[in-house]
Design a protein around this nucleic acid. Structure first.
Length: 412
RNA sequence: GGAGGGGUGGCCGAGCGGUCAAUGGCAGCAGACCGUAAAUCUGCCGACGGAAGUCUACGAAAGUUCGAAUCUUUCCCCCUCCA
């Protein structure tokens, strides 16, 4: 075993570790259970997405090893917007939007942790509680004196932005200071001594560590995880329709499952380690699997991740739908996870396949749908159709497919 | 404050009076292949329309012109250099 603490060992094996401050001391510190670590989530949308999963699973692992995860939601910092490594300024969100988003994000976090007052129960804190009412001058005198602009400008996250001729507003520049202050607050008030974050957060995290050292003389720790990228270096978690959301309202459990079922071959094992509770020794055995057999692993991966987020109950419907949707002439009634579209019998004459495709949101416009049909990409019950296609009343249910993966059940 | 350079489709980036719904690249979608993977090749990729065509779009608004992304004026925004 490389580390003394069980948490660090598993975190490292699973691929969560990128870099940290004083690793040895942190290792030592983590040997005792009931430690606190936090990660911040800005609340820029109604739901979290796949990109947030690494820090979430890291905190989850932290809890598994008997420690206490502190989840910080950025009710205050979201009003600023983290400029780290971004070349565009984030849009300003109104208070109402932020409050609205907060509800959704809390919901997303629920399945991952056991919450409560116990020694290893997760808690959620909101930095709006201490940031909203800061007084400018006292804050500057108390905290601002601890920061050197020279040093801040030197951070990669800032440098990148400045050297590419992007504007870094003073507002954004303060983000780092406020994040450092969050850490300081959580340390002094809750005894939270560790901050987790993506590797892009390094600058912000180090600032916090330094602030605490200056103010209190105590050592705290920062720990970053690698960013989630696919094997070819692209950002993971993006699809045609945007982010892969964790909330059911934005992405159905079926589509969520499909996302994992379709990860690249090269990323399957990596995802197993990061996003499932499967024992590391079990995963180790899977590493030798190659070629077509990886498809079975992808299903396991999809099942595991989906279970954690959408619950075990969601799997039955998904499995039935999958086994039917990807083979011909099967039981359409069983495909409960697919979206449905109903046509009235009296409208059959006037309703074309194009109308249905557009109305169901499979294509953005009629022209788009037509082009797809011309290209041979639209099927009814697995037979390609032409633009003139009309549904007939012989069957109650038909399967309408755009491409091989997008399906719709049409009820007549 | 002064001088100069810019703002083009999801992104990057050509075009600089008609042949421009706008070259090219990336991203995306579909087809072939196939393993619901990757790579490759082919097609598509503003809206409406069967089509002819119509409409909406090159930062905003006015104008010149038979005709403007392209010229003029004003405004907004960004960048660089000088002070």
């Amino acid at each position: 075993m490389k580390y003394k603490s069980s948490f660090l060992n598993e975190a490292a094996i699973r691929g969560f570790f990128y870099q940290s401050t004083n690793l040895e001391a942190m290792d030592e510190y983590l040997c005792e259970k009931g430690r606190l670590a936090y990660t911040g989530f800005d609340i820029t949308a109604k739901s979290l997405h796949v990109g947030h999963l690494i820090p979430i699973f890291l905190l989850r692992l932290f809890q598994k090893h008997g420690h206490k995860p502190v989840i910080l939601v950025g009710g205050g910092t979201t009003k600023i917007g983290d400029p780290s490594f971004r070349n565009t300024t984030r849009p300003m969100l109104s208070d109402e939007q932020i409050a609205d988003n907060l509800v959704g994000i809390k919901k997303c976090l629920m399945p991952f942790f056991k919450f409560g007052d116990g020694a290893s129960d997760a808690i959620i804190v909101n930095n709006a509680d201490w940031l909203n009412n800061l007084n400018y001058i006292p804050f500057l005198r108390d905290i601002g004196t601890c920061f050197s602009i020279n040093r801040m400008v030197g951070f990669e996250s800032v440098k990148a932005k400045l050297s590419e001729n992007n504007t870094l507003s003073f507002l954004e520049f303060n983000y780092m200071i406020l994040q450092a202050y969050d850490f300081y607050k959580l340390f002094t008030e809750k005894g939270c001594s560790i901050q987790f974050g993506g590797q892009d957060q390094w600058g912000n995290i180090v600032c916090g560590v330094e602030l605490i050292r200056k103010k209190t003389g105590k050592e705290v720790f920062g720990f970053t995880n690698p960013l989630l990228t696919t094997s070819d270096g692209k950002k993971m978690g993006k699809t045609a329709n945007g982010a892969v959301w964790l909330s059911k309202d934005l992405l159905s459990a079926y589509d969520f499952w499909q996302y994992w079922r379709n990860v690249d071959d090269a990323d399957v094992i990596k995802c197993m380690y990061l996003f499932t509770d499967i024992d590391v020794n079990e995963i180790k055995k899977m590493e030798s699997v190659r070629g077509q057999e990886l498809n079975e692993l992808k299903k396991i991966l999809a099942d595991e991740v989906t279970t954690i987020i959408h619950g075990k109950d969601s799997l039955d419907g998904i499995h039935q739908t999958v086994s039917n949707a990807f083979s011909k002439g099967t039981d359409l009634n069983a495909m409960t996870s697919l979206p449905r579209y109903k046509i009235d019998r009296k409208d059959l004459e006037t309703t074309s396949a194009i109308d249905v495709i557009v109305a169901a949101g499979l294509c953005a416009s009629r022209g788009d749908a037509k082009r797809l049909i011309r290209g041979g990409g639209v099927y009814v019950d697995d037979e390609p159709i032409t633009e003139e296609y009309r549904f007939n009343a012989d069957k109650k249910l038909v399967k309408l497919s755009c491409g091989k993966k997008k399906h719709l059940i049409v009820e007549i």
